[in-house]
Simulated scan of single mutants.
Amino acid sequence: MTISAQESIVQVISDLLVEKFEVPAEEVRPDAPMRELLTDSLMVVEMAIAVHETLGVKVEEDELRGTTLAEFAEAVGARRTAR
């Protein structure tokens, strides 16, 4: 994956966090733990659905709880290129 493709996945996920989940934009940074951005279980489930609908990649709830934004975007990007 190229840097620009990785950055665009980070941007898509960041946009979802800000627009759909109303996370303050200043909190959405690559090193932010996803568990801090998605503060409850419902948000985690909804993000997994949104990522699948938007990027065509299935993700597990545990991935969303155990990674930073950058790590999560990297995992999603790897799955997109593996298809």
Rank of each mutant, 00 (worst) to 15 (best):
M1H: 11
M1F: 08
I3T: 10
S4N: 12
S4D: 12
S4T: 13
A5W: 13
Q6R: 12
Q6N: 10
S8G: 04
Q11V: 15
V12W: 02
D15H: 08
L16V: 04
L16P: 00
L17F: 01
L17A: 04
L17K: 02
V18G: 00
E19C: 03
K20T: 09
E22Y: 15
V23T: 10
A25S: 11
A25W: 06
E26S: 10
E27S: 12
E27M: 12
V28S: 06
R29P: 06
R29F: 09
R35P: 05
R35N: 09
E36T: 13
L37G: 04
L38C: 11
T39Y: 14
D40S: 09
D40A: 08
L42M: 13
L42A: 12
L42V: 15
V44Y: 03
M47S: 05
M47L: 11
A48T: 08
A48Q: 04
I49E: 05
A50L: 02
A50I: 01
V51K: 00
V51I: 15
H52I: 00
T54Q: 03
T54P: 01
T54G: 00
L55G: 02
V57H: 04
K58L: 13
V59W: 02
V59R: 02
E60L: 11
E61W: 04
E63P: 08
L64R: 03
L64I: 14
R65V: 15
T67N: 09
T67H: 12
T67C: 10
T68R: 00
A70Q: 05
A70K: 03
F72H: 05
A73Q: 05
E74I: 09
E74T: 15
A75L: 13
V76A: 09
V76W: 01
G77P: 11
G77F: 01
A78H: 14
R79P: 04
R79Q: 14
R79L: 12
R80Y: 03
A82N: 02
A82C: 00
